[in-house]
Amino acid sequence: MKLNRILILIDDSPCAIRAAKYGYELARELQAKVALLSVVDAALAEGNVDAGIFPEQEAGKLKRAAEELLHNIRNDYGQSVETEIFVPEGNVKETILQMAKEWKAKLIVIGSHGRTGFSRLLMGSIAEEVIRHSPVPVFVVPVTIKL
Rank of each mutant, 00 (worst) to 15 (best):
K2A: 11
L3M: 13
R5P: 04
R5A: 02
L7Y: 12
I10P: 03
S13F: 05
C15N: 06
A16R: 00
I17E: 14
I17N: 05
I17K: 00
I17C: 02
R18E: 07
R18Q: 12
A19K: 01
K21P: 01
G23W: 08
L26A: 02
L30V: 02
L30G: 12
L30Y: 14
Q31C: 11
Q31D: 12
A32Y: 05
A32P: 11
A35P: 01
A35R: 06
L36D: 14
L36I: 11
L37R: 09
D41T: 05
A42K: 14
A43I: 02
A43Y: 02
L44P: 01
G47R: 08
N48A: 13
V49E: 12
D50G: 01
D50A: 14
A51T: 04
G52Y: 03
I53N: 07
F54I: 03
E56R: 08
E56Y: 00
A59S: 11
A59T: 07
G60A: 15
G60S: 15
K61V: 03
L62A: 06
L62P: 03
K63I: 00
R64W: 04
R64N: 10
A66R: 10
A66I: 06
E67A: 07
E68Q: 10
L69H: 09
N72W: 05
I73S: 04
R74D: 10
N75E: 13
G78P: 08
G78M: 07
Q79F: 07
Q79T: 08
S80I: 07
V81W: 06
E84W: 00
E84I: 01
I85R: 06
F86D: 02
V87H: 01
V87I: 01
G90W: 00
G90F: 02
G90C: 01
N91D: 13
N91V: 05
T95W: 03
I96N: 05
L97G: 06
M99W: 12
A100H: 08
E102F: 03
E102T: 10
W103E: 11
W103S: 06
K106V: 09
K106Q: 15
V109A: 12
V109P: 12
G111C: 11
H113D: 15
H113W: 10
G114T: 00
G114R: 07
R115I: 07
R115K: 10
T116G: 15
T116Y: 04
T116C: 03
G117F: 14
F118Y: 15
F118V: 15
S119V: 15
S119D: 13
R120K: 15
L121F: 15
L121A: 10
G124D: 14
S125C: 11
A127R: 08
V130Y: 07
R132Q: 15
S134L: 09
P135H: 05
V136F: 09
P137W: 11
P137K: 07
F139I: 05
F139Y: 09
F139T: 12
V140M: 00
V141K: 00
V141I: 14
V141S: 00
P142S: 11
